[in-house]
Simulated scan of single mutants.
Amino acid sequence: MIVVTGATGALNGLTVEHLLERVPAERLGVSVRDPSRAEHLARRGIRVRRGTYDDPAALRRSFAGAEQVLLVSSSDIAADVVAQHRRAIDAAVAAGAQRILYTSTVGAGFDTPYPPLAIHAATEEHLAASGVPWTALRNGFYGDLPQLLGPWQRTGTIAKPADGPFPWVDRRDAAEAAAAILAGDAAYDGPVDLVPSPPVTLADFAAAASELTGRHIERAIVDDEAWVAEEVAAGMPEPAARFALSMFQATRSGHFAQSDPTLARLLGREPRSIADQLQDMRHG
């Protein structure tokens, strides 16, 4: 059995859908905080059990019988996320899982200005010490394109701090790759970079947006402190603005400049391009 956490969320919800195309529903289970939100999965024959990273006993019950467990990284900003991840890993080990997979991020490491990378690195350390075969799915960046780019469709400008190359991946591709690894015969041990090639910059987004719309979209660089002040004035809490700034700073120092063919190989095609994603955003 394959048990997936976070299956009512955006990323692993898509992963479950791709798994259903590859394995029978009775071989799938989900561990979710609120089983009522997973009734659509239960109706399709998937085992649904309650599990939360703050309740080790419930986690162990939700992982029972699993050969593989896919752990999604915690999004609880108020929690000790590394402790949550350790509890989840320990519960999977206690339940007898033969492999533990974890949604990490490319560039995971301790020497970085971007705090999530240290969280992922600490989680990977605990996986390595667990005694169970493990895989870290080091995904490229994905998420809210309007938030990343700002109101470029209205202003004609992508006005953000200076950036460097970073691997922006479509969440749908990350989910499909995870399902391919879970359902495939090949063992992926340790960290696996799941990134499109090559990495991109916001100037690349501006160029793609210009071609898509037929009008010039400018890439304007905003001073770090001026950008933080603008975001705070627009209603963003300053800690959140500085957290977002740290991502741009990490791209500038080359933390995300690597490329890897693994994602394309797992998909059997090239990943969705930034032009594809911009097109989807305009019509979404």
Score class of each variant (00 low, 15 high):
residue 81 V to Y: 03
residue 38 A to G: 04
residue 101 L to H: 07
residue 237 P to L: 14
residue 139 N to L: 06
residue 212 L to C: 05
residue 131 G to L: 08
residue 53 Y to K: 13
residue 15 T to E: 10
residue 19 L to K: 02
residue 86 R to V: 15
residue 96 G to E: 12
residue 199 P to Q: 00
residue 30 V to T: 07
residue 99 R to C: 04
residue 103 T to D: 09
residue 149 L to A: 11
residue 154 R to Y: 07
residue 252 R to L: 01
residue 246 S to V: 05
residue 76 D to N: 14
residue 252 R to W: 01
residue 7 A to E: 12
residue 78 A to Y: 03
residue 51 G to D: 15
residue 103 T to G: 08
residue 44 R to Q: 14
residue 184 G to P: 03
residue 266 L to S: 00
residue 220 A to K: 11
residue 182 L to I: 00
residue 237 P to E: 12
residue 89 I to R: 04
residue 89 I to S: 12
residue 167 P to H: 06
residue 182 L to Y: 00
residue 168 W to T: 00
residue 115 P to N: 08
residue 184 G to H: 00
residue 110 F to W: 03
residue 104 S to M: 08
residue 266 L to Q: 00
residue 50 R to M: 12
residue 230 E to F: 01
residue 251 T to G: 03
residue 185 D to W: 04
residue 30 V to L: 11
residue 237 P to F: 06
residue 258 Q to R: 12
residue 104 S to G: 11
residue 125 E to P: 08
residue 72 V to D: 09
residue 142 Y to E: 09
residue 109 G to F: 04
residue 274 I to L: 07
residue 264 A to Q: 12
residue 151 P to G: 14
residue 220 A to I: 02
residue 87 R to Q: 13
residue 131 G to K: 10
residue 263 L to D: 14
residue 275 A to E: 12
residue 69 V to C: 09
residue 184 G to Y: 01
residue 238 E to S: 14
residue 102 Y to Q: 06
residue 182 L to D: 01
residue 110 F to T: 08
residue 274 I to E: 07
residue 95 A to W: 02
residue 158 I to W: 07
residue 166 F to P: 01
residue 226 A to S: 04
residue 43 R to E: 14
residue 196 P to A: 14
residue 226 A to C: 00
residue 145 L to E: 07
residue 260 D to G: 04
residue 55 D to M: 06
residue 120 H to P: 08
residue 11 L to N: 04
residue 5 T to L: 01
